[in-house]
Deep mutational scan, measured.
Amino acid sequence: SLTLTVRGEEAVRRWYKWAQAHNLEVEVETHGDEYVLHIK
């Protein structure tokens, strides 16, 4: 499992696509303009 902090929706989309390509689940938490992604 992997936890990432990114800024901006574009980065979130990029990681989301990456995770889907690897059959992984993604949980997204929003903290202001930062997003915490939990990839499992």
Rank of each mutant, 00 (worst) to 15 (best):
T5E: 04
E10V: 08
Y35N: 02
E34M: 15
K40L: 08
Q20I: 14
D33Y: 06
E34H: 15
T30G: 09
V26P: 02
A21F: 12
G8K: 03
R13F: 08
W18F: 05
E27W: 14
T30M: 14
E34G: 07
V6S: 02
A19N: 01
V28E: 03
V36E: 03
A11V: 07
S1R: 11
E27I: 15
E34Q: 11
E27D: 09
Y16R: 14
Y16N: 05
L2G: 04
R14H: 08
G32N: 06
E27Y: 14
T30P: 12
E9D: 08
T5L: 11
T3V: 11
T5H: 14
L2P: 04
V28F: 07
Q20E: 12
Y35H: 05
L4E: 02
G32T: 04
Y16P: 00
L2A: 04
A19S: 03
L4R: 04
G32Q: 05
V12I: 08
H38K: 10
K17Y: 10
K40Q: 09
L2N: 04
H31L: 12
H31W: 10
V12C: 13
L24E: 01
L4T: 04
T3F: 04
A11H: 06
N23F: 09
T5G: 03
A21N: 08
A21H: 09
E27L: 13
S1W: 14
L4Q: 03
Y16V: 15
T5Q: 07
L24I: 06
G8A: 05
L2I: 13
R14N: 08
R14F: 15
L24N: 02
V28M: 10
H38W: 07
R14L: 12
V36M: 06
E29P: 01
V12H: 02
K40P: 04
R7K: 13
I39Y: 02
L24V: 06
R14S: 08
E27C: 13
H38V: 11
Q20G: 05
T5N: 07
R13Y: 09
T30V: 15
K17D: 10
E25Q: 13
Q20F: 09
A21L: 13
Y16E: 12
E25G: 05
E10L: 09
L2D: 03
R7N: 07
V6G: 02
V36R: 07
E27S: 13
E25P: 05
T30Y: 11
H38F: 09
E10W: 08
V6N: 01
V36H: 06
R14D: 06
S1L: 12
A19R: 00
A19F: 07
G32A: 05
G8H: 06
L4N: 02
A19M: 03
W15S: 01
R7I: 12
S1N: 13
E34A: 10
G32F: 05
Y16H: 08
T30C: 12
I39N: 00
N23W: 05
E9P: 09
G32I: 04
T5D: 02
T3Q: 08
R13K: 13
L37E: 00
H22R: 10
N23K: 08
R13V: 08
S1E: 14
I39Q: 00
E10F: 07
R7E: 05
S1V: 15
T3W: 07
V28N: 02
G32S: 04
A21I: 11
A11L: 09
Q20P: 00
E34L: 15
E9L: 15
V36Q: 05
E10C: 12
Q20R: 12
N23I: 03
E27V: 14
Y35Q: 03
K40D: 04
K17Q: 13
L37T: 00
Y16C: 14
E10R: 10
A19L: 08
V36I: 14
E29A: 07
I39M: 06
G8E: 05
A11C: 13
E25I: 14
A11F: 05
V26Q: 01
L24P: 00
E29R: 08
V26H: 01
R7F: 12
V6D: 01
E9S: 09
G32Y: 04
V12N: 01
T3Y: 05
V36W: 05
T5Y: 07
K17I: 13
T3P: 03
A11S: 08
L37S: 00
T3K: 10
R7V: 12
E10P: 06
E34R: 11
H38M: 07
V6M: 03
E25L: 13
I39D: 00
T30W: 09
V36K: 06
E29K: 08
G8M: 03
H22F: 07
L24D: 01
D33A: 07
S1G: 14
A11Y: 06
Q20V: 13
E34Y: 15
K40V: 08
Q20H: 10
N23P: 01
Q20L: 14
V36D: 02
E10Y: 08
E34P: 02
E27F: 13
E10D: 12
I39F: 14
E25R: 12
L24S: 02
D33W: 04
K40S: 12
L24T: 02
H22T: 02
H38P: 00
T30D: 10
L4H: 04
Q20K: 13
I39L: 07
T5K: 13
L2R: 06
T3N: 06
E29M: 09
Q20D: 06
R7H: 12
H22I: 03
I39T: 01
A21M: 14
K40T: 13
W15V: 10
T30N: 13
L37V: 08
A11W: 06
T30Q: 15
H38S: 07
A19I: 07
L37I: 14
E25F: 13
T5S: 07
T3M: 08
T5P: 03
L2W: 15
A11Q: 09
L24Y: 14
Y16Q: 15
L2K: 05
D33I: 06
Y35M: 05
W15R: 01
W18S: 01
R14M: 13
H22Q: 08
I39P: 00
D33G: 08
N23A: 08
T30S: 13
E10M: 09
W15Y: 05
H38T: 14
V28G: 02
N23E: 07
L37Q: 00
H31K: 14
V26G: 01
Q20M: 14
A21G: 06
T5R: 15
V12M: 15
Y35V: 06
Y16L: 15
Q20W: 10
V6H: 01
L4Y: 03
W18L: 03
Y35A: 03
V26L: 13
V28A: 04
S1K: 12
E29F: 12
G8F: 05
E10S: 09
W18Y: 07
E34T: 14
K17P: 01
I39W: 02
E10I: 08
R7G: 04
K40W: 14
E25D: 10
S1F: 12
H31R: 14
G32L: 05
N23Q: 08
S1T: 15
V26D: 00
H31S: 09
Q20N: 08
R13P: 01
A11T: 07
E34D: 09
A11M: 10
R13D: 09
V28T: 06
A19G: 03
T30K: 15
V12W: 06
V6A: 03
L37P: 00
W15D: 00
A11P: 03
L37G: 00
K40Y: 15
H38E: 03
K40F: 14
A19D: 00
W15F: 08
H31V: 12
A19W: 02
N23T: 04
E27P: 00
K17M: 13
H38L: 08
V26K: 00
V28D: 01
Y16M: 15
N23M: 08
E29V: 11
N23D: 09
G8L: 04
E10Q: 09
L2E: 03
S1D: 13
H31M: 11
E29Y: 11
E9V: 14
R14Y: 14
V28Y: 06
T30A: 14
E29H: 09
A19Y: 02
W18A: 01
L4P: 02
E9T: 10
I39C: 11
V26F: 14
E9N: 06
W15K: 01
L4G: 02
T5I: 15
W15L: 08
W15I: 13
V12A: 12
V36A: 03
V12Y: 14
A11G: 05
W15P: 00
L4W: 04
G8R: 03
L4K: 04
R14C: 15
